[in-house]
Design a protein around this nucleic acid. Sequence first.
DNA 1: GCGACAG
DNA 2: ATCTTGTCGC
Length: 240
Amino acid sequence: MAKRPYAAVSVRDRLAIEHAWDLAPEKARALQSCLAQRVICADPIGPVEHIAGVDIGFEAGGDITRAAVVVLKWSPEGPPFQVVEQVVHREPTRMAYVPGLLSFREVPAALGAFAKLQTPPQLVMVDGQGIAHPRRLGVASHLGLWLDLPTIGVAKSRLCGTHGNVGEQRGDWTPLEHQGERIGAVLRSRVNVKPIYISPGHRLSFETALDWVMRCLHRTKLPEPTRLADRLASRRGPIV
DNA sequence: GCGACAG
DNA sequence: ATCTTGTCGC
């Protein structure tokens, strides 16, 4: 049988999906609740050879959405990792930012970038929340569902939920909860720096999500995958 | 009704 | 997210 080029979502699925992007806020929220039921928050995730980092930036005063994906080769020795591929995909911005509906603004462009990727990753880290979302469908979860890959949400600030104080040592963390449910962890990724919010996006557990983020931490606040994707999305690097 | 609110 | 200069620190 013919080998399908690497594109996590088939063309036909893309069409069906794209129809579901431009929705009125109420419809979008209803769809999130529906999709959240399909999110799997458990292991195993299988052997990891390549890890992708995803982030979105904007150009032309916000009219153009710029999706960046960086693929790193995982090494047991830890970071810094080798960059094996980087892709940037641009397309017209779909809609304005609405708290809680970020995925409808960013996932379409992210899928466009993944469609151009040659190296299939086994794990994806996304800049934003996973299930640490009012309806349990942050951008990392939404993207994970369509890519059908394990994803982790790595956010720089809180969207919802409450938590106690986080220890001061690198690696200290405390649970993030919302409406009586555990939705993620608040992690001190670096001393003297605001903690980051980690949550499973899809197809892995809380523990595994936290493990991989800690394994990818180098000397900065953000784990390597999202740190590099961040730079690429705002065109400050890698590109070399 | 009054805040809070990923990127 | 983006618009923006210098500045404090490793």
